[in-house]
């Protein structure tokens, strides 16, 4: 598969997910080689979302090179979080509906929920950005519901229950066995990007503001002749 072919399939996967075309799930579940295409959707979605939420990187004053690196990292992080989602939903589906969806298939399909996040960079838009972010999250949730419906042949209420339970599980796991994973994530970010995702933004603002104002004062008073 050439790069052009890959980009074409990537575009097809994104577009068909966005318009809720159930055919895309059939294709992805039947053909294992679509893994790289759906992974691409997750990576692009994660990277784009990071651009939209990049205020945290700018506040931490990361360099342009580290900014690019953080896009790759966020894409990977996003893909991993979707992978965890896939495991949880497959587990719940098996538990509730006695339908066994192979983990690899569940993962491939779950990556498609990242399709709306391709527009994540629009979150950058001042004032409207946060509303756009909410719209994208709802869009992604609707795709997730459709995927659950496709995998387990559930109705909308059942799909909602499964997704709701999945969300509860992620909260529960995040506060317990997920802690070392969060610590590892923070360590990686700190090491490669030099910034923490949970930085105290107010503290940083205050510190940098003081530095910048002091610089200006010194320049101007020196120019005035001491």
């Amino acid at each position: 598969m050439s790069v052009i072919d890959y980009l074409y399939y990537l575009w097809q996967a994104i577009w068909n997910s966005l318009i809720f075309n159930p055919r895309v799930y059939e294709v992805v579940s039947e053909y294992p080689q679509t893994f790289w295409v759906t992974l691409g959707v997750a990576l692009v979605g994660g990277a784009s979302l990071l651009i939209g939420q990049s205020i945290v990187l700018f506040v931490n004053q990361v360099t342009p090179a580290r900014f690019l690196l953080s896009m790759v990292l966020n894409g990977l992080q996003f893909a991993i979080s979707l992978l965890i989602w896939a495991v949880l939903l497959a587990f719940l589906g098996d538990l509730i509906f006695r339908i066994d969806v192979p983990f690899v298939v569940a993962t491939r399909i779950m990556f498609l929920t990242a399709a709306p996040m391709v527009f994540g960079f629009l979150v950058l838009i001042p004032y409207l950005g946060l509303t756009i972010q909410k719209i994208l999250q709802v869009w992604s949730l609707l795709i997730t519901l459709q995927i659950v419906n496709f995998q387990f042949s559930t109705n909308i209420i059942q799909s909602l229950i499964v997704v709701g339970l999945g969300w509860l599980l992620t909260v529960l796991l995040g506060g317990t066995i997920g802690r070392p994973i969060t610590a590892l994530r923070d360590y990686i970010w700190k090491t490669f990007i030099g910034a923490s995702l949970d930085a105290d933004i107010d503290e940083i603002y205050g510190r940098i503001a003081k530095q910048k104002v002091e610089g200006v004062t010194r320049q101007e008073l020196e120019a005035r002749g001491g």
């Binding site: 205020i55 004053q61 990361v62 940098i208 910048k212 610089g215």
Partner: peptide, 22 residues
């Protein structure tokens, strides 16, 4: 809209304009 905040964010991060005086 997407480009709008980049000037101020870039300045703040030290990408453009004056550098932070320590």
């Amino acid at each position: 809209g997407v480009l709008a905040p980049l000037e101020s964010l870039g300045w703040y991060a030290g990408w453009i304009g004056e550098k932070v005086d320590e």
